[in-house]
């Protein structure tokens, strides 16, 4: 019985956290960043096989015998590393909001 009660009060706690303005701010910050960038990297990634399969535009030369297909392939690496670092930078901001949510609740 007692255990159940503790459980219940915890459940109410989660609801109140979800409703708090700081938690809502965290969710909207995350959405604003994660959704557009996820769409972007999927588009960027699938553009390569789509272009190589259905067109020959990437077969034209960039410098010497290096074609655009190789340039685009290498850009996939740059894109991945770039978005990786961008995420870590952005995430420190998420961490700050999380810290605020925790301190509001007296959790460390």
């Amino acid at each position: 019985m007692e255990a159940k009660e503790i459980n219940k009060s915890f459940e109410n706690d989660y609801s109140s956290i979800v409703q708090s303005s700081s938690f809502q701010a965290l969710l909207s910050e995350k959405k604003k960043f994660i959704i557009p960038f996820t769409i972007f990297f999927f588009c960027f990634y699938f553009a390569l096989p789509i272009l190589t399969s259905y067109s020959t535009v990437l077969n034209s030369k960039f410098i010497g015998d290096i074609t655009w297909a190789w340039v685009f392939a290498f850009l996939q690496f740059i894109m991945t590393w770039g978005l990786c670092m961008l995420y870590s930078k952005k995430a420190t901001k998420f961490d700050e909001i999380t810290k605020q949510i925790k301190s509001e609740r007296g959790i460390n």
């Binding site: 915890f10 459940e11 989660y14 956290i17 938690f23 999380t98 949510i101 959790i107």
Partner: peptide, 15 residues
């Protein structure tokens, strides 16, 4: 309720 719990835990690590 359960989703709220998952939402809080997954985003903040609280609990």
């Amino acid at each position: 309720k359960k989703y709220e719990e998952v939402l809080v835990k997954s985003n903040t690590g609280i609990g």
